[in-house]
Design a protein around this nucleic acid. Structure first.
Length: 201
DNA sequence: AAACGGATTGGCT
DNA sequence: GCCAATCCGTTTC
């Protein structure tokens, strides 16, 4: 049920980003277990990706996490406020990452409601990368944690979406990435209300 | 030691 | 739907 390390070693970050739709992302924070179905992702393909923090082979304390072997979390602070959660994939020194942009609450809905101070029926509870991470209780202490461990992991619940149920669009918030800004590397489940805006094709 | 700037959010119209 | 807050970790000097 829990995805094994091998799952994360694929060199095809685009395929992986798409495949993660329907998988269930869990966290265990002080015994409080919550999880949600991944409904929106973005692929970041490493040192050649102008939208990636690792573009050009940039190595700093922050980006070092992405250079590790696939199967760990990359969590960083955005706008000084939001913790964004990424899945690190591929082999060592190939800093691929997949940003989890939205989940649909599945397990531990009450815990998420407390964290977000709104009912789980409200899409905003886990729509958008900052909100999804907060709903799951993810902060920077999750950075570099193994996705095969007991604090954060991803399960296969045999939910699969067919291509016609998946929308593909450019990534959000990366206008600075020049010719890479328009690459079709964002994937989401069509008509799922927890998908962040813009949620049209 | 200091400046920088952002994989966004949510409040307001 | 638009626009502005935000603010600390990261990077660089």
């Amino acid at each position: 049920m829990k995805l094994p390390e091998e799952y994360y070693l694929s060199e095809d970050v685009v395929k992986l980003a798409k495949d993660l739709l329907g998988k269930v992302l869990f966290t265990n924070v002080n015994g409080n277990i919550s999880g949600g179905t991944i409904v929106e992702t973005e692929a970041y393909f490493g040192i050649k990706d102008k939208a990636s923090h690792a573009y050009g082979g940039r190595r700093t304390n922050r980006t070092e996490t992405m250079y590790a072997k696939g199967g760990i979390a990359y969590v960083y602070l955005c706008y000084g406020v939001h913790n964004l959660f990424n899945v690190v994939s591929a082999t060592i020194n190939d800093p691929h990452a997949i940003l989890i942009r939205a989940i649909e609450p599945l397990i531990g809905k009450e815990i998420m409601e407390d964290r977000r101070n709104m009912p789980y029926t409200k899409a905003a509870i886990s729509s958008g990368p900052g909100s999804a991470a907060k709903a799951l209780g993810i902060d920077r202490s999750f950075n570099a944690k193994y996705l095969t461990g007991d604090d954060v992991w991803i399960e296969d619940h045999q939910i699969t979406f067919h291509d016609e149920e998946i929308a593909t669009t450019p990534r959000v918030g990366i206008a600075y990435a020049e010719e890479h800004a328009l690459l079709p590397l964002r994937f989401f489940v069509k008509d799922n209300k927890y998908v962040s805006k813009p949620n049209k094709i």
